[in-house]
Write a protein that binds this DNA or RNA. Sequence first.
RNA 1: CGGGGCGUAGCGCAGUCUGGUAGCGCACCUGCCUUGGGCGCAGGGGGUCGCGAGUUCGAAUCCCGCCGCCCCGACCA
Length: 441
Amino acid sequence: MRLSQYFLPILRDDPKEAEIASHKLMLRAGMVRQEAAGSYSWLPLGYRVLRKIEQIVREEQNRAGAIEVLMPTLQSADLWRKSGRYDAYGKEMLRIKDRQDRDLLYGPTNEEMITDIFRSGVQSYKDVPRNLYHIQWKFRDEVRPRFGVMRGREFLMKDAYSFDLTREAGQHSYNKMFVSYLKTFARMGLKAVPMRAETGPIGGKDSHEFLILAPTGESEVFFDKGFHDVDWQNFEIDYDNVEDVAGVVEKFTSMYAATSEMHDGADYEKRVPADRRMTGRGIEVGHIFFFGDKYSLPMGCEVQGPDGKKVVLQSGSYGIGVSRLVGGIIEASHDKDGIIWPEAVAPFKVGLINIKSGDAEADAACAKIYKALEAKGVEVLYDDRQQPGGAKFATMDLIGLPWQVIIGPRGLKDGIAEVKHRATGQRENVALDKVVEKLAG
RNA sequence: CGGGGCGUAGCGCAGUCUGGUAGCGCACCUGCCUUGGGCGCAGGGGGUCGCGAGUUCGAAUCCCGCCGCCCCGACCA
């Protein structure tokens, strides 16, 4: 993409309504635009990141055996009356009437709907286990939306729902999601620490939150230093192997980690040696629940067992805040100059800077590399604007693309470009004909 | 929902107390100059001062009502 033809409304000053780094940077980098309290339009740069995160989530859900569906944003109130949550959910639920005066709501979550869908599609114990998920916009009419996309009212969420015949089988479904979450967040360059959680209004028996560590997190967290040393990603897992999956869960839950709400000081001191006690702040990016028959029972979600008797299914739900992750990643990865995208979620991999746009030689050298990178499938944003070099550097650092290729008269004399790694700041002179090779890996 | 604050050009702000032709910086447009970390000079465009009703010869400014947004507290992916 040529920047001269892109839509990237950069701001030089921090908008005054933004309080935390990710919010400021997302507005300054032209990623989003606020439309109302807690409601954002996703501009081209931000949308690219959102889609990349969504795709990673999707791939890891699929790998763990979950099956993608898509449910509507608007739901009928009747479903929620059946589960008893229509009244229980309170003002956070946005309620709407249609022209026939029927009660609708903009879905804050989908347990009712998925349970209804699943129930009507299965009759036999042979139809379970199953895990269905979708990635859809949710609306929760938060009392106080804030921090940009970190706590919006409208947000993109992946929610998965498992259905099993027995509690034991349900536990395995839960464990699979637990492990897939570790892998999902690790792929985005994040360490998301699983912590035992309250079950809250969703209800249920077992629950973990996944929190990424960042100084601006909303929750205070206490954890074992061991989390810094474990292998988050490079373990192989066979999701069908019940013991192996449970083993990973055991490994990660055996270390102490708790938010302040769940923190037990005595237990902490008993289980964690003083030199390994860590405190910090965390941002919740995922939350998983096992809730047994809480929804299956009132909604009549059951199948016929091998003995011919009806069995109420055991279920769980598993959420990831996809849009929140955009802000969360920035909180975990930025510096004074701007965002530092992990490569897996970067809107473009490479930013190509033409120091002297308009100079025939510089233009030609840039155009050649630009085309070659695109031909190799490397996502590149080419700053071909008529701007002083300094402005281009500042823009590129702000939007945080992992690699910058800097081409100007100075280097061209010797046939070289400068390649800068945004995260480390390391610069390297690379022969013009080796640039593509270096970055196409 | 309780408490506090703010709405003036795309962004950041001054002007409001004490009513009298709406301003500054950045951004933007034109020309020249420049291009290795937000360059310089000259010229220029852009605002129903959040909305409505009032007081007044005259309202961004005073009065009344409303709306929006932000921050602090109790709740949430």
